[in-house]
Amino acid sequence: MEILICMKQTFDTEEKIFIQNGEIDDDGVERIINPYCEYAVEEGIRIKEAHGGTVRLITIGGAEAEAAIRTAMAMGVDEGYRLDLTDFPADSDEQTTSECIVQLIKQKQIPYDVILCGYMSIDNGTAQVGPRIAELLGIPHISTITSLTVDGRQVQVERDVEGDLEKVESSLPILLTAQQGLNEPRYPRLPDIMKAKRKPLHRMKWDELRVDVQMIQARTKKVAILPVEEKETGQILSGTIKEQSQELIRLLHEEAKVL
């Protein structure tokens, strides 16, 4: 089984967000594997454990993303590709990300039966990149999966659809996006962390893709990044619980006017 994972590195969930000169300040932030990509990595490794094969991974990111790639390798990924878009001469968006990943797959002839993505990235959060890759490769996708069974070339999936559970059948090759509940990602063991350092990691610059910048550049444009307005400190009520409850209803009715 040929398994391919598209994984993104993101800020740690606990990081506070600061804006510097109109950009998100990434100075000294803790970074992690995007949590939904972590489920994808774990599931890819489990497919290999059950059916044999190779698990490969693609990350678009700068040098700092290699920490995430090594962690995924310590979990069990065999081989990694990091594509650096730092010097890309135009704006990039989800169109750029997905076109670049597809070009990389084609150029390096990376084989795949299953492609696993996160359902969304917790920073950009558009949930676009997975389905876009599937469309560009001409394969089906199933999103927000919470359970997966691969049986020969057949796949059976359970997915979360706004709380409802949908059972879907399809066949390989397919792209799947991982939702929480799919699995419990493992912690890498120390010997595996050591071994991961020697696993093959291929680094590429965007110009090695030999793509037409016009074709893959962003179709959307950033106008501004804005902070979330500091909320005025809320009002903690006082008095007996009964008084507080009465006061709360009055405030919701008369002050906030939401009742």
């Binding site: 800020f11 506070k16 967000i17 998100i24 959307t220 106008v223 990044i225 804005l226």
Partner: peptide
């Protein structure tokens, strides 16, 4: 009301910031 045609706002970083974006074409 912007000089761009239409500007949309969307939350990023789990709602810890917003980005305003427009479409070029």
């Amino acid at each position: 009301s912007s000089t761009y045609e239409f500007v949309f706002t969307r939350p990023i970083y789990a709602g810890k910031a917003y980005v305003q974006r427009t479409i070029t074409k």
